[in-house]
Amino acid sequence: MSLDHADVKKIAHLARVDLADEQMESIAKDLSNILNLVEQMSTVDTAGVEPMAHPLHMVQRLRSDEVTETDARELFQSIAPQTDAGLYLVPKVIE
């Protein structure tokens, strides 16, 4: 399977990655190569093999429901570009 420039553009947009036009060719090729490898793996018969959700054969540990964090707003907001009235400010988002 090979990706064309339009596919790469769409993926880049979804990931909010800014790609220059001259990068398109090589990235399309690299991504296509990865997909080809995956395609090769897809030919293996995996019937009866449970899909792996995590490389470690371990089970999720659960924590008890307790509030352990205290307010550290001042610390966190000291590295924020802009804040006002306790809020983080970001460029206006319009739906």
Binding site: L87, Y88, L89, V90, P91, K92
Partner: peptide, 15 residues
Amino acid sequence: KSLHEDFHGMTGIDL
């Protein structure tokens, strides 16, 4: 939550 009013053209975020 996003608050779209009153922040001089910016959006306020409460997490």
